[in-house]
Design a protein around this nucleic acid. Sequence first.
DNA 1: AGCGCGTAAACTGTATGCAGATTGCAATCT
DNA 2: AGATTGCAATCTGCATACAGTTTACGCGCT
Lengths: 225, 225
Amino acid sequence: MKQIRRKQIIRTGTTVEQMVRAIADMIVTGVMHPGERLDELSLAVRFDVSRTPVREALRELGAMGLVDREPNRSAVVANVTEAYLHSMFEAMSELEAICARLAAERMTVDERHALELEHRASARLVHANAQEDYAAHNTEFHTRLYRGAHNDHIYEMVTQTRARLAPFRRAQFRLPGRLAKSYDEHDVIVTAIMRGDAAAASQAAFSHVAIVSDASIVFASDKAE
Amino acid sequence: MKQIRRKQIIRTGTTVEQMVRAIADMIVTGVMHPGERLDELSLAVRFDVSRTPVREALRELGAMGLVDREPNRSAVVANVTEAYLHSMFEAMSELEAICARLAAERMTVDERHALELEHRASARLVHANAQEDYAAHNTEFHTRLYRGAHNDHIYEMVTQTRARLAPFRRAQFRLPGRLAKSYDEHDVIVTAIMRGDAAAASQAAFSHVAIVSDASIVFASDKAE
DNA sequence: AGCGCGTAAACTGTATGCAGATTGCAATCT
DNA sequence: AGATTGCAATCTGCATACAGTTTACGCGCT
C-alpha cells in the first residue's frame, strides 16, 4: 500500500502539492465555506498522512491567500467573497492590458510571428467547436502575450492571478458562441500588436478579459448556491 | 482589512516567521548568492532550531519566489538578478499608476481629504529634513493611494511587490534633495486626484515611482559589489 | 586509463511525541 | 442567577526519529 501511494505521488506531485490542490479546490468551489476551520489533525486523518505535510500545505495555502493563519489558532478558510473575486478579475484586466501594451512595444519579430501563427491556427478549433482544444490554445495565446511584455515580475503576477482564477473560469467556453467571440477579440489584439499600436492592444486586451470576467462571475455565483 | 491583520502577524514573530524574514533579508541583501543551496540541516543548526520550522520557512520563501524548490532537492536561492529587480521596479510603476488612476475615480470624499491632509502635513518633515519620519509618511501616503483604488487584489499585489523591494529602497531618502523632490511629485499626484483627473494622476504616479526606481537601482548595484 | 556499477554518506520527506497555548465547561463565589 | 476562576480537553509549534531518495566516491572490469 505504500507502493500505491508512491505511484500516485509520482503521478501528481508530492503529497503536499496534492493536498494544496485538493484543499484549494474545496475552498474555491465552495465545498468549504469562509471562516470554516481547517484543523490539522482532521485533515491529516482525511488525507491519511501525518500532521507534518498538512502543516506545510496550510502554510502554502496561507501564502496563496486562500486561508488565514494566526499563531496557535486553526487555519480558517479565507473570505474569498464575491467582492474579492471581482477585484481579482478587475486586476486581471489591468494586468492583461499592461502586458498587451508592453508586448506591442517590445515583442521581437519572432514572438510576433509566433503569436500570429498560434492565433491563426485556432480558427480551425472554433469551426470544429473543439472547446477543450480551444481552451488549451487560449492558455497558450495569453501566455505568449504575458511573455511578450518582457517583464518577469509582471509575468509572475499575471500567471499567479490567472491560476487563482482558473477554477472560476473553467466553464466559460461552454457558453454558446463564446469560442467565435473569443477568437474575434483575440484578432483585434493580435492586429494591434502586429502594427505596434500599444494603446489599441492595451484597450482590446482589457475589454477581452473584462468580457471573460463577466461570463465567469455569473458562473461562479451560480456555483456558490 | 484581512491584509493588515496578516501583516501584523508577520511582525509578531513566531520562530518560522522570524526565519523567513532573516533568510529573505540575507537573499535580498546579497549575503546569499543566487544558486546557493539552502540545506535544511545547516539552517537548523545556524538558527538553533529543528528541521521542521526550517522546512516551513523554506516553503514560504518558495511561495514568495525567493527560493526555488524541487522535490528531494535542496532549496536554492532564486535568481534575483538585476534584470529581475528592474522588472519589479517597472511593475511597481505600472501598479502604482493603476492605483492612482482608480483612486482618482473612486476615492470617497473622506479618503481624498485624508490623503491631502497627510500630504500637507509632510511639508514640515521636508523642511526639517527628517528622513526617518518622512519615510514613514511616504509609506502611509502610498498606502492610502493603494487603498483608494478600492481593489483588494491589486492592493495585495502592490503591497507584496513593495515589501519585496523594501530592502533595496531603504536608502533613497538619503540622496540630497530627494525629500523635496518627492514632496513635489506627491503634490502633482494629489492635485490630480483631488480634481478627479485619472489620466494625470496615473501619469504622475508612474513617473514618481520610476524616479524612485532609478535612484534605488543605483543604490542596489552599489551594494552588490 | 576510462567506464560502469554498487555501496555508503548526505539529504529530503514523513511520522510521531512532547510542551505550551487556547478554549470550553463546570464548579464556586458574589 | 450571573459572573468568574480553575481545570481538562484540544490543538498548535517544535523536536526527534525513521524511511526513502539522491549523490558521490571508490572499486573492479574492460
